[in-house]
Design a protein around this nucleic acid. Structure first.
Lengths: 161, 161
DNA sequence: TATTGTTATACTCTATAACTATA
DNA sequence: TATAGTTATAGAGTATAACAATA
């Protein structure tokens, strides 16, 4: 299966069998997000705003800090984004009657419609890219991505940190 | 092979079959690079400096601007990095006798040794992560990554842009 | 005049710290 | 006093523009 004839792939000397994963992932991720920016722009969404819509649709989030952490952002950074989304009627942000310090966050019907439209457009593009791969590689790629991105941070650190 | 029973996977309504590739790639890439930072720190290398060492070892680069573009950086941004690498004897930066405006860039033996040491450590960690995947997914993942990251930017844009 | 490399400047993104209100 | 959210400030990273040397 491997293309190299040497016995030591992790190579204390000589060229390694593959490029670093990170060295391949960084440019690919950058190119992908850049290619999807026009789609977001067309719907007046910033990238973080889209991340918020995606996250809120999965499972309800009680506090803004938890939402920020879930999407890998800072709690101070999403405030302006939530302001905008609320103003446009895409999300609701209501004080919790039980603890009026926390803001209960939820998607409006229109927010869900927008999320659907944007996500369809984005995944359509992504599928075009995936279609360039052999079916086996494509399936393995998506499955591996799902497995790895589902790893909780502490388990990730335990493996690689 | 697919887990869903609906016929329409790109979903004009309802939940999509998978999360967005970008939504999975961004956190994974961030976690990977974060996990590799301590390795780079231990050798006194910034991430961009490591990118330079990797790139110079592949094929010689004639101008600094070309090097910057090759690693996805700005030409003004790598100058301080090249200064440091040169000062430490890891790269050579000599004026081209044929055109004294351009600086010929190359790796010294010590630069290559450092690159090897760092890359071995990094790929060792990456392999630990990959070992968590089924063999088929792992191979597909790496092959897909190699295919996609080898796409020239204009071809990438043609597919997805 | 055009190009390589460099320096200086401005801008964006992100993180830290200080403030308000509720508890 | 402690916490959720907000605001203000500072810092890092990045891009833009002006400059010097060479062609």
């Amino acid at each position: 299966m491997t293309e190299r004839t040497t016995e030591d792939d992790t190579a204390s000397h000589g060229r390694p069998a593959r490029r670093d994963l990170a060295a391949m992932l960084v440019p690919l991720t950058r190119a992908l997000t850049a290619a999807e920016l026009p789609v977001l722009d067309a719907h007046g969404l910033a990238m973080w705003a889209y991340a918020v819509l995606l996250r809120l649709d999965d499972t309800p989030v009680r506090t803004q800090a938890a939402l920020a952490q879930a999407i890998g952002a800072d709690k101070t950074r999403i405030i302006g984004i939530l302001d905008d989304l609320e103003r446009r009627g895409l999300i609701r942000r209501e004080p919790d009657p039980a603890d009026r310090r926390v803001r209960l966050l939820s998607l409006t019907d229109e927010g869900r419609r927008l999320r659907d439209a944007v996500q369809s457009a984005i995944q359509l593009r992504e599928e075009k890219l995936l279609s360039r791969l052999p079916a086996a590689d494509r399936d393995g790629f998506v499955r591996a991505l799902q497995t790895l991105s589902a790893l909780p941070p502490d388990e990730f650190d335990e493996i690689i940190g």
